[in-house]
Amino acid sequence: MLNRVIQQFGLYVRSINEVEDSHSSTVYKCQLLSGDNVYLKIPYTKLKFQRELEAYEILKGYVAIPEMLDYWSGDEECTGAFLLSELKGKPLTSEASPTVAYQVGVLHAQMHEIQPPAVKLLTGIQNEFLNWSNFIEKQFYSFAEDVSLVLDQHLYNLAIDKFEKMKVQLPSPDGPSFVHMDFRPANIIVDSNKVSGVIDFESVRFGSTEIDFTKLYRDFLRFDILLYQAYQEGYKSIRPLIDLEVVLPFYRFTDAFNSIGWCKRRGIEKNAVFLEENLVILKQFLL
């Protein structure tokens, strides 16, 4: 399949390395004979391919993203593939400066400023905003069966009760906005003290911004109050920021619950560390 994609794009490749930490696509970093680096991305499903394709068209010129150099719609054997330029730098880490955190806030807000297009018909990116409560509920309960196989019955029942009580206390949703759904350090590229851009759009939706802060908080913002404050300042320089103290507890709880279900689906042994991290977070909310 990889050779077919390389031929499809007419590439002359010197070396190929598979990129780790990609959960919804197979991604390869390719060094061309010219010396340039490009990325090949093969989504797992046709829907993820279509979301990614539409996201590049919507975000271009508004948000810092890689350049989509080419794409192939695939065939019966391949879901499709993208040829992407390289964003200079490495994934964001908690060692970043407040200056970088500020830029991450700006980048995130620029993405949230984008609303559903008035004229373009989208077939991949769903607009979930009008039924936001139902979307969150459907997402939660889609993982519940998997979670029930991991948690003991008492803890599982507590989680279900907690969800039902917390969801009715949420404020009115903020949107409709373009939400990444996986806005975490691994998908934010930083070069020295400058944010190069954001990657990976196979899970994007139009919906409420409130869901989109969770993973960034979990993996980055909660470790340093100065980073958290700088991020908020950057975000507010572009658009108003919702009260994160009100919505984060609910979304941190549901993210932990859903992540436990995700680990069960993708393999508990392979994802043992991530599973344990989310069990700790879930128990903090329940016990």
Results as ranks from 00 to 15, higher is better:
Leu2Ala: 11
Asn3Gly: 01
Val5Ile: 15
Gly10Ile: 12
Arg14Ala: 15
Ser15Glu: 13
Val19Arg: 09
Glu20Arg: 11
Thr26Cys: 03
Lys29Arg: 15
Lys29Gln: 14
Gln31Arg: 15
Gln31Pro: 00
Gly35Val: 07
Val38Pro: 06
Tyr39Cys: 10
Lys41Ser: 10
Lys46Ala: 02
Lys46Phe: 00
Leu47Tyr: 02
Gln50Glu: 10
Gln50Ile: 11
Glu54Lys: 03
Tyr56Met: 02
Tyr56Asp: 08
Ile58Cys: 03
Val63Cys: 07
Leu69Val: 06
Asp75Thr: 06
Asp75Lys: 06
Glu76Ser: 05
Glu77Pro: 04
Cys78Tyr: 10
Thr79Tyr: 06
Leu84Tyr: 02
Leu84Trp: 05
Gly89Tyr: 13
Pro91Val: 05
Pro91Gly: 03
Leu92Met: 04
Ser94Leu: 05
Thr99Trp: 12
Tyr102Gly: 00
Glu113Cys: 15
Glu113Tyr: 05
Ile114Ala: 02
Gln115Arg: 15
Pro117Arg: 10
Asn127His: 13
Leu130Val: 14
Trp132Gly: 12
Glu137Ser: 09
Glu137Pro: 01
Ser142Glu: 15
Val147Gln: 13
Val150Ile: 15
Leu151Phe: 14
Asp152Met: 14
Gln153Val: 12
Tyr156Ile: 09
Tyr156Trp: 12
Asp161Gln: 14
Asp161Glu: 13
Phe163Gly: 00
Phe163Ile: 06
Gln169Lys: 08
Gln169Leu: 07
Pro173Asp: 08
Asp174Trp: 05
His180Thr: 03
Asp182Cys: 06
Phe183Met: 03
Pro185Tyr: 08
Asn187Cys: 08
Ile189Thr: 02
Ser192Leu: 09
Asn193Thr: 08
Ser196Asn: 10
Ser196Pro: 04
Val198Gln: 02
Phe201Glu: 00
Glu202Lys: 05
Glu202Cys: 05
Gly207Asp: 06
Ser208Asp: 08
Thr209His: 01
Thr209Asn: 01
Ile211Asn: 01
Phe220Lys: 04
Asp224Ile: 05
Tyr231Gln: 02
Tyr235Pro: 13
Lys236Ser: 14
Ser237Arg: 02
Arg239Glu: 05
Pro240Ala: 13
Val247Ala: 04
Tyr251His: 13
Tyr251Met: 04
Arg252Met: 12
Phe253Tyr: 09
Thr254Val: 15
Thr254Cys: 13
Ala256Glu: 04
Phe257Thr: 08
Asn258Arg: 12
Ile260Cys: 04
Gly261Trp: 06
Gly261Met: 08
Cys263Thr: 09
Cys263Gly: 06
Arg265Ile: 08
Arg266His: 14
Arg266Glu: 15
Asn271Phe: 13
Asn271Arg: 07
Ala272Lys: 11
Phe274Ser: 04
Leu279Ser: 12
Ile281Gly: 00
Ile281Cys: 00
Phe285Gln: 03
Leu286Arg: 07
Leu287His: 10
